[in-house]
């Protein structure tokens, strides 16, 4: 079953076509990786899906409903959550308050007391239970990334858009997050993740698609995609393709 699909997605900034006629889908329970060099349009695509920037052309369907022109908060409430590449927590609130807000407004099913319990659960899930009372501005960058993830999880998404959650983490932290990602999937959510850390992409995703200069150029299983000449050309230059 297809949870999320995009068709003909296009976004133009001034004269620059950031995303051009992109078509993709994510199935239920699937982890899809989205890779591509800097400036390929990955984050723009995430912004278009989550409603933060308008699509110039194309449609996004989520669980069968057209969500192309919906405001971001409506999309979030339908069960499509995201993280930001450069984390955007609520810095002067505590770790738990950040996650609490996600639980309160993402689902609208909980009273404050229940939401608080839910926030605690999510924080235990991502391994931040011991830092609940600290202000987000005071915790490390790696922990802020987890807060960002927990905030999105607290909205109880059916589909999670992860925008480079592993960037800037060390090897051990990356493994931790990979494990969390797999557990999120095991709990029933689908994931579309933008990532530069190839180890993570290969390690967790079922399928990968590659963007370059706004277009989707290759799609397939991770190992196949990374061996594809076009992908190697994009990352390393065509010199490396035929040996």
């Amino acid at each position: 079953m297809v949870v999320l699909e995009g068709e003909g997605l296009t976004k133009v900034f001034g004269g620059l076509t950031a995303v051009s006629d992109v078509r993709f889908n994510v199935h239920a329970g699937e982890i899809v990786g989205l890779i591509g060099p800097n400036g390929a349009g990955k984050t723009t695509l995430i912004n278009m899906i989550s409603g933060l920037c308008r699509c110039d052309r194309g449609t996004v369907r989520f669980r069968g409903r057209d969500i192309t022109s919906l405001r971001p908060y409506r999309i979030a409430r339908m069960g499509l959550a995201r993280t930001f590449q450069i984390v955007r927590p609520f810095p002067r609130l505590t770790v738990r308050e950040n996650v609490l807000i996600g639980a309160l407004y993402g689902t609208r099913a909980y009273r404050t007391r229940e939401a608080l319990a839910r926030a605690t659960e999510v924080l235990e899930f991502v391994g931040l239970a011991d830092k609940m009372g600290q202000r987000v501005a005071d915790v490390t960058q790696a922990d802020q990334k987890r807060v960002e993830l927990a905030k999105a999880l607290a909205t109880e998404p059916t589909l999670l858009l992860l925008d480079e959650v592993m960037a800037g983490l060390n090897a051990k932290e990356i493994e931790d997050v990979m494990r969390i990602v797999l557990r999120i999937r095991a709990a029933g959510a689908s994931i579309l993740m933008v990532e530069h850390v190839m180890k993570a992409i290969v390690g967790v995703s079922d399928r990968v698609f590659v963007m370059h200069q706004g277009r989707k150029i290759v799609e397939g299983r991770p190992a196949e995609v990374l061996a594809d000449d076009r992908v190697i050309a994009v990352y390393l230059g065509s010199r490396f393709t035929k040996r």
Binding site: G51, L52, Y73, P89, P91, I101, Y105, R108
Partner: peptide, 13 residues
């Protein structure tokens, strides 16, 4: 704290 991020967790800003 952050209006865009608030929208992303479902707040009708």
């Amino acid at each position: 704290e952050d209006e865009d991020a608030a929208q992303m967790v479902g707040i009708n800003t």
